[in-house]
């Protein structure tokens, strides 16, 4: 994973540089984000820049792993802690399978209980209107496939725009990022997709607000 850690370091440096260079650009001149998003990584909103290979995070805290997790939720429930950047798949007996996630702007806007309403392989992508406004050259619709910012799989939540999806930018895992919802590395979201059925409960929790 040398390459991945290199990419991560590079992107953090670049993010800082990018943020200072374009501090007044429309992309960043938005309303102040919630506290949880203070250290937001300003990712390019373009369709995925990095490899489209199905990356699995294999080392470090954001690698998929078994953890101790007390929960009264039934086995199979997904619990998302946005402040920690982790998604837990409840296994019962005080255990969970934990995945590292990146949380996009939309991911901080709602908390509570929803259900997986639909699953999609290589989902289509419809950039939100404000993104079209900032980047008028984007296609208004992008059929699913490698390179698509939605990544390899998507779990749609309820009837909302909320979704758990993949990403072509695995270096964004563990960060708050400027777009998207709950993103996993493409290989990890494929794994999660195979373990989750439509109708699964999803609990989304943020840090307490002040």
């Amino acid at each position: 994973m040398n390459r991945s850690s290199f990419i991560r370091r590079l992107s953090l440096v670049a993010a800082a540089g990018f943020a200072s260079l374009f501090a007044t650009s429309a992309a960043l001149a938005q309303a102040a984000p919630p506290a949880a998003m203070r250290e937001t990584m300003a990712i390019g909103d373009e369709p995925g820049r990095v490899s489209t290979e199905e990356v699995i995070i294999r080392e470090g805290a954001f690698a998929r792993q078994l953890v101790f997790f007390r929960s009264t939720e039934p086995v199979g429930t997904l619990v998302i802690h946005t402040s920690e950047r982790f998604l837990y798949l409840v296994l019962g007996n005080n255990r969970a399978l934990r995945y590292g996630i990146g949380v996009g702007r939309e991911g901080f806007t709602w908390s509570g209980l929803v259900r997986v309403s639909r699953k999609a392989e290589w989902p289509d992508w419809t950039p939100p209107p404000e993104m079209i406004e900032r980047q008028p050259y984007l296609p208004r619709f992008m059929a699913g496939g490698p390179g698509n910012p939605m990544g390899s799989r998507a779990l749609y939540l309820g009837s909302t725009i909320y979704r758990i999806h993949g990403t072509n930018q695995p270096e964004t895992i563990g960060h708050a990022v400027s777009s998207g919802c709950f993103r996993l590395a493409n290989g990890d979201v494929i794994d999660l997709y195979s373990r989750v059925q439509t109708g699964t409960k999803v609990v989304i929790r943020h840090a307490a607000t002040l």
């Binding site: 470090g60 997790f69 920690e84 934990r98």
Partner: peptide, 28 residues
Amino acid sequence: AEVYERNVGARSRLGIPRGLNQLWSMGG
């Protein structure tokens, strides 16, 4: 959480999951 993650948790080399040391209301 900040003390934990920085020194022994997700932001450290050790990468120890919160586990038992998570808040009582969050799985620990």
